[in-house]
Nucleic acid binder design. Structure first.
Lengths: 347, 347
DNA sequence: TCCAAAAATTGGATCGATCAAATTTGGAGC
DNA sequence: GCTCCAAATTTGATCGATCCAATTTTTGGA
């Protein structure tokens, strides 16, 4: 068991040449079935595995995707990235792709990392997890012809349909529509919203889902709806204050939908009445405390990201990507849970 | 800006040969300072980066470390792995190492992945995040001469000091000593413990920290201490039941230390009195709800893991690893927070 | 000043795979 | 049986770096 077998060993064992072995691996249709079988059994016998680095040197492709591991953001919703990463790694594997991690301290540093990884032929594509209008990173990537896909829409007016910028995102508006509709269906009318101040791409999008649904409902008037909205910073403690503000509105509030699980958790803690509250992201906290939340279908996002990457890279687009094969918007789904056994402390 | 520069381009630009450029990069001490400077400025001018795959093909080393991305375990404590991964990636980068992700459905599948990644020369070491006595994975790795380090001790009697098994771990016993001592110092005497059933390597270790401290204290008798312990499954809801059991013990309980943040969160939710509760892992949940918790120094763990890997790999051990240069136990620290504004609901 | 030993540098070969072009094979058609 | 063409297979070159052995330059002592 000295050396690992190479193509040459397989070729000798099967009584063919190197190239034929290579063809069996990469272009099986070129090889006659009888020959193919001989080679395949030799591969199995010897336990041959292609040497990844050698292949990459020759083909100038790394079959590796780079992704930045963000420093824990606020914390609670960090698990979304975590789950996304897991889905991505799993699916990349089935396509023969690998995920390489890197970290960066700021956007400029990140660009430096892009360059480093690209020049070393370490990766041949990047996945970015959050971008913004005029993001220097996407600009650099486009200018330098690096292929990449972002999880999250670029929220600038022009950017959104830029054919050079491939993205996959979750339809937050749809998610909040679902959440709001769910509460309306249970007979509640005055549904409040706790979100982030505008402008915030994702925030404004989610808010719209609530707003539109409320306007279409037969409940509060437009003026009343406006009073049922509170925007605040992200964080549990801000959620506490926000729900108290909502509860003190004339007419009160009968249910709340939030832009995040952190805000929802705060709302649950701060709420003096036991009103239903729905979060966003379906984080472990929501699951363990037991409140409803909108779940992002991260498997689908991962699939979309890889489809776009391999499609763009290989030059061929998948058949079912009918309308816009460069962007993909997937629908989240609402996870309904009973109101948890959690309330305010009698301090 | 057609092709990326190669060693030959740099050599030509600097007026030296390929090998000299290679020496500047890999064995600078062999090159005369004057020559070295010339080469270095040529490298900078051309923006040359060595082609990672070519180097790996020649040297048969990948400078890449593989790590399995676990499927989200129970959820809440999943963020520990996340933070560890971040620390690892960051520090690996400073040593010129890269982190490659993979997933696996079970231990056997994981071994298959080891093989795949090794044969493809994709990685030259692995980091395992949790091992157990008689773990088939570590056995395979040792048998096949693969270098690896585990985060977590192998809890078997013989395994622990196996010189072939490098590990880094956090001293959970010390952590629970700190937590228990902290509560004792505030004047409380009857400190309870909520943990997992034996045998559990980490669980038993943490429990010991609480038990020893209680025995050394001037508080409850040994018999009373035994009543202050509840073991249960991991999970928030189990924590709820556990704290209620403790509160109904004759004499009650004045404070609780837990084996995990999930249990601590459950205890907080289930507790009818407002007693201080300390968790373990200092997860985002602990931070946002605001209860005390024992924090694992993941940066130090990451440093240790890489030290052991590069030490074992390069054959040289760091100077300050005095006692046992193959294993490293780091001390966690207690993060103290006020009792949170969270209690039981008046259902 | 000269010579041997040490230091620095050079060109050729190589890692394991794939590409490109050349060669052989097999089968249809006459 | 023979020609011819397409399909199947083989051979030679190459990707970019490092290793190895050989060569040239420098250093230091007599």
């Amino acid at each position: 068991m000295g050396q690992l077998p190479t193509v040459l060993d397989v070729a000798t064992a099967a009584g063919v040449s190197r190239q034929t072995v290579s063809n069996v691996l990469n272009s099986p249709e070129l090889v006659r079935p009888a020959t193919r079988e001989k080679v395949e059994s030799a591969i199995a016998d010897l336990g041959y595995r292609p040497h990844a680095s050698a292949r990459r040197l020759r083909t100038q492709k790394s079959s590796t995707i780079g992704i930045r591991l963000d420093p824990m953001t606020d914390g609670i919703s960090g698990s979304v990235l975590d789950r996304f990463l897991h889905a991505l790694t799993e699916q990349a594997d089935t396509k023969g792709l690998r995920m390489l991690l890197f970290t960066a301290t700021d956007p400029d540093d990140e660009i430096r990392q892009f360059q480093r990884l690209r020049d070393g032929a370490d990766v041949d594509a990047f996945v970015l997890t959050s971008t913004f209008h005029g993001d220097p990173r996407t600009e650099w990537l486009i200018e330098n012809g690096q292929s990449f896909v972002t999880f999250g829409r670029p929220w600038g007016i022009d950017d959104m349909n830029d054919p050079q910028h491939l993205w996959v995102d979750v339809d937050g508006r749809h998610g909040l529509r679902e959440a709001t509709t769910h509460l309306l269906k249970t007979g509640l009318r005055r549904i409040g919203y706790i979100g982030w101040p505008s402008p915030s791409g994702t925030g404004d999008d989610r808010r719209l889902g609530w707003l539109e649904t409320m306007r279409e409902s037969s409940g509060p008037t437009t003026a009343e709806i406006a009073e049922l909205e509170v925007t605040t910073q992200e964080g549990v403690s801000f959620g506490v204050a926000a729900v108290r503000a909502l509860e003190s509105v004339p007419g009160g509030v009968e249910g709340v939908v939030c832009a995040s699980d952190s805000l929802a958790l705060g709302a649950l803690i701060g709420s003096t009445r036991r009103i239903p509250i729905i979060g966003y992201d379906n984080t472990p906290v929501a699951a363990s405390i037991g409140f409803s939340s909108v779940e992002q279908p991260l498997d689908e996002v991962a699939t979309g990201v890889l489809d776009l990457l391999t499609g763009a890279h290989g030059g061929k687009l998948s058949d079912d990507a009918v309308t816009d094969p460069r962007h993909r918007l997937v629908k989240p789904r609402l996870i309904v849970r009973d109101v948890p056994t959690l309330g305010v402390a009698t301090r």
